[in-house]
Design a protein around this nucleic acid. Structure first.
Lengths: 344, 344
DNA sequence: GCGCGTTCTGTACGCGCGTACAGAACGCGC
DNA sequence: GCGCGTTCTGTACGCGCGTACAGAACGCGC
């Protein structure tokens, strides 16, 4: 009454178990007569047989599963990465298992204990602690590991984005268009890792330009939180003529707040976001943003991981990509003059 | 140079392999002297040994992994479910592997082929096709399966939400507060499954009340899309005094559009969303919404799955929960009179 | 010291597969 | 019909673990 195994199929088809494996392997280089193969396939079909992936993995020494470790939260940017990564892996006949990992690592204080899913390799995306914990545990942790996104670690394979350079370009753009009182909209708590580079860039550029810094703090990453924080800030003091936002979700909230206060985005107040999610383009006044190189980041991470799986003792692979500043009407006078201007 | 196995630990600690397994099992009911256990633990530590989860799974006949199949998209509601489910599973010493599944099923036309991750059980959340495909393949598919969310199938264990009843209550609320020209904001394409119940409820209640239906179509689920669609719709025609939204993301966009047009949410135009995401509460004018019973849905789904794993031939378990209408200032005069009124 | 129950440890096997290797079957030319 | 190369199939084992069962070691009372 239990699930049929190779033994059952072999008996039913009157062949050996090895022949069953050969017939079902899908490999064309294995010699097998048409008739035998057909008999095995018919038997498997009749019995409802499916190979046991666990046994296959143990025998073959690999699972064809790649783990994707990330935080699953409310962000279109992350959804883009999941989708892109999944397509890449499928093309190579791998399957992807996502684990919402940060809290797990915190609970278990160890890398592989955080997830029992047997993987051939791991990609961690935007996880502050995974990289350093893997580096610490690497002697006893077997799977190949590539870190991707915002949190650089010197000891792991890594595909990152130069958030600092991107942010410098974005803030310099605001300065170059004549903005003098540029506020930085970021988070009251958490996420110091990815925020740090953008924070530093903001401070450095403003100091360079002889301008004063000012900060608007949102309690969490959400359109609504950003809306409220920006509205209250702008109501309390006047003179802000630009807002640089930690990410696009916050920028959307800022856009909403500015509009609600009867001001014009790109007019009284310029606005720049980060990450390049689609929504920034669809507003009546499209928002200038730093687009993340999602496509290339995923492609490189998978390439690094494949290289590592072929030769785990190979050299350290690291690559830093640059985000691309997409000028739009929310900050760029030239874009604003064109209808719905978008320089992408 | 390869990963150490139980054999290496046994040799190092000068005990048998069975003793190694016993010492590392963590089970207190197995007899083992303190000294032996300490020697094994020391050996494992020295060699950096970790049990191979694939081999453990094959020997024990279970993986302690539960698969969560869902669409990963831009929705706080889904993130809530992931988080809640993960906590529940961890409490029972299970590990969760998420697969972004819809497209996979479409590609492979079969249930287990869609994912190689060896699971003891599967929970599908808001996946239109997973349930019916599992029902079709159930003869040959072994893992226990529970479907959860919007897409009911008569043949699988299921925890659902009565979207129709909830939506009826929401629309009747609008009618009862005197709204006469109630529009339904939904999607131009896709997602007929979850939208259908709310669409039906809207039409039925309006017909019952002798009111005319009217529809605003957003191209996709996003705040920005909803903003644009609602703005254009309201600019083109006047007289709309309420909008019932397919979900809260669309409601946020509608809120934004109404405000941008200089009208007052809860005043000229009442607004009701669906799902109960946090953002709806944080706006200057909080939005009435149908809160999904996330907590109870996850708890029941896990309970059903555990029952099924204990006895796969047990009776069909199905349960329909009701969403809860949270009255707020966007539609409810009583809430509006209280400061930031929220009946939750 | 001996007997007996209890606690501990080792031997042996099974989980379901992939695959190396050996040998059987086949085809072909003479 | 025979020899030889090629194609096909079966035997046998290993992957790394959990655990049943047997037997060894131990402790205790007499």
């Amino acid at each position: 009454m239990s699930r049929p195994t190779r033994t059952d199929v072999a008996r039913y088809a009157r062949v050996s178990e090895a022949t069953v494996s050969r017939a079902l392997s899908g490999r064309v280089d294995l010699a097998i007569t048409k008739d035998t193969r057909a008999r095995v396939l018919a038997a498997a079909e009749a019995l409802g047989y499916r190979p046991n992936p666990t046994a296959q993995a143990l025998a073959a020494g690999r699972t064809q599963i790649i783990g994707l470790w990330m935080c699953l939260d409310y962000s279109r940017y992350r959804a883009q990465v999941v989708d892109r990564m999944q397509r890449l892996l499928r093309q190579s006949d791998y399957c992807m298992a996502i684990t919402d990992i940060e809290e797990e690592i915190g609970q278990h204080h160890s890398f592989t204990r955080a997830s029992r899913v047997p993987v051939d390799g791991l990609i961690a995306f935007d996880t502050p602690t995974a990289g350093s914990i893997f580096a610490r545990d690497s002697r006893t942790e077997h799977p190949c590991f590539v870190s991707m996104g915002a949190y650089w670690d010197p000891h792991t394979h890594f595909v990152g984005v130069d958030l600092y350079a991107g942010a410098v370009e974005a803030v310099e753009h605001l300065v170059s268009t004549g903005r003098k009182r540029i506020a930085f909209l970021h988070l009251a708590a958490q996420d110091p890792g990815s925020a740090k580079a953008r924070y530093d860039a903001y401070c450095d550029v403003l100091q360079q330009a002889g301008l004063e810094t000012q900060f608007i703090l949102a309690p969490a990453i959400s359109v609504a939180d950003a809306h409220r924080s920006v509205r209250e800030y702008l109501q309390a003091r006047s003179g802000v003529d630009a807002i640089f936002c930690l990410n696009d979700d916050l920028a959307l909230g800022a856009h909403q707040a500015i509009t609600a206060l009867g001001m014009q985005v790109g007019g009284e107040i310029a606005l720049v976001g980060c990450d390049g999610i689609e929504e920034t383009e669809l507003l009546p006044c499209p928002i200038t943003t730093l687009r993340q190189p999602v496509e290339e980041m995923c492609r490189l991470a998978w390439q690094f991981l494949q290289t590592c799986m072929e030769d785990p003792s190979g050299p350290l692979q690291q690559r830093i990509l640059k985000p691309r500043l997409i000028l739009r009407a929310s900050s760029d006078p030239a874009s604003a003059r064109q209808k719905g201007g978008d320089a992408s």
